[in-house]
Nucleic acid binder design. Structure first.
Lengths: 201, 201
DNA sequence: CCGGATCCAAGTATGGATCCTG
DNA sequence: CAGGATCCATACTTGGATCCGG
């Protein structure tokens, strides 16, 4: 086990030191979440179950599979949402805002680690994220969960998040009744994360 | 896997048929909850996670370790309580009342199964149980959780229920603040269960 | 004795994400 | 191409209770 980084500079140095390294080709690495967990361990993340991967630094780590042009091949999962509490949710105190307040993106091309990118939302980006949040949570709060699709939201989208369709949670419908539905999570659109990895002036 | 009993008579017959049987002496049976789980399986209980062990019959199964005089060697665990919701809890709709509305006690002496006892609370017993419930939940509802000990309650008592002291839950203190404390559960006192196993006219 | 502390197995939830059809 | 579906490992929770020191 690797000690947690003592400050942001140490985390920067560790992340930079991984650049160009190739992750092991072991069969056990071919499963969905294994790359992310391995990079967490290599950087000394300790926040399993906490709000951030690096709780003292308030930094969230995300590995992103990319192509040779640094374009993400997938969207990036952020966190789950509580459908039943959507009506009272506020952006300022939301889990998704906390997670996204400071992110370390580690792009992975095939098995090679590329240059890390630290990101904090600009004022403009935060306005757009908040607008997505308000739109999505507003719909859910008004009982429209089944009308929400991954088409909604400019930067943030809402998608199913569960092992399979047999996992259920509850939400309110338009009549205010509790109904069973599939769990959802927030995701960052691939094109947005792509713009963060290759900034244009 | 054994099919669930179709009616109460079938459950009675199965429980009676276990009387005098000796549970296997396998090392794997020497752990705390294993006897209860084994008897559940032998009787065809299906209610893992449900309110009752036999959901269709509304019957709860409890194995009770006893001495040669049928005196329980331990108190009997009933269920957990939600400390944070204690203030609004009512006996009529409580989990503990449901659990205790119909119980099949299976006494175990060393590894031998003794005669089963079906029990439904008499009116008098239910009054006493309710009095204990109201006393305990009233204290907790008023933020006095840390003043409640296993001395309180005539038939029902409240005791810690967790792997070890590191597991925590939350309750309200006297100032209405949420505080961390150890999870609790309801238990039936050993002397009360003893009186149910050896009724005196 | 018995009140407070603890133990194990199994099921569920969570965090890590990628898979895969139309 | 990307929205909806799904996969794995690990942590946490729950239900089964018994352990053990004062």
């Amino acid at each position: 086990m690797i000690e947690p980084p003592r400050d942001l500079d140490e985390l920067r140095r560790r992340a930079a030191a991984l650049t160009g390294r190739t992750l092991s080709t072991t069969a056990s690495l071919h499963t969905k979440g294994k790359t992310g967990t391995l990079v967490e361990e290599l950087l000394g993340a300790t926040g399993r179950g906490a709000v951030h991967d690096f709780p003292e630094l308030g930094v969230e780590l995300k590995t992103v599979p990319v192509d040779a042009q640094l374009r993400p091949r997938e969207s990036t999962y952020v966190c789950r949402i509580s459908l039943a509490e959507a009506e009272h949710a506020e952006w300022e105190t939301s889990w998704v805002r906390s997670k996204l307040s400071h992110v370390l993106f580690v792009p992975i091309h095939e098995r090679t680690v590329l240059a890390p990118v630290f990101w904090r939302p600009t004022a403009e980006q935060e306005r757009a994220l908040r607008a997505d949040f308000d739109e999505l949570m507003g719909l859910i709060g008004r009982g429209r969960i089944e009308d929400v699709t991954a088409h909604d939201g400019e930067l943030l989208q809402l998608r199913p998040k569960a092992r399979d369709g047999s996992v259920r949670t509850t939400a309110f419908d338009r009549d205010g009744e509790l109904v069973s539905t599939v769990p959802r999570g927030f995701y960052l659109r691939a094109r947005f994360v792509g713009s963060l990895l290759t900034p244009r002036p």
